[in-house]
Amino acid sequence: MADVNRGDRPLSPHLLIYRPQITSMLSIVHRVTGVGLFVGFVLGVWWFFAAAAGPEYFELVDWIVTSWIGNLVMLGCCWALWYHFCNGIRHLFWDAGYGFELETVTKTGYAVLIASGVLTVLTVIVMLASGGSDEAAANGTAAEPAVRTASVASTPTGADI
């Protein structure tokens, strides 16, 4: 046809030609974490299924999920979940029509990175704290009545209840 200029026309810029920017990187990571969380969901459902199936099967699945490689995958999924969670909220604000200014987009982008890191560390702390509860259980039973009597004594209406 009249396509004489073939090969000499400007090409649509390819993805790889762009300098990495926080906006594009976070957008790509949102998709990657979304797809990656499929693995976490499979592991989580498998774990629940094993718990429902019985103690023997649970022992096997629990051993796999909490092995060092299982822990590594779960830690990655933990961060991926919080990242997708935080950046998802950022997306919802965009859907509602807020936060489109370049400066705001950059700021919220860094906020998402920081918040997802903080939430991951918080989750790990909560998990580790409960991990120690097995050993602390014996001490806990001794401490609990003391706390309870203290709270009853400090409440004047305690006698009515």
């Binding site: 909490t66 779960m74 409960s130």
Partner: peptide, 9 residues
């Protein structure tokens, strides 16, 4: 869920 993970059956 995180607290239950790694706990006994």
């Amino acid at each position: 869920f995180g607290q239950a993970l790694g706990e006994s059956h």
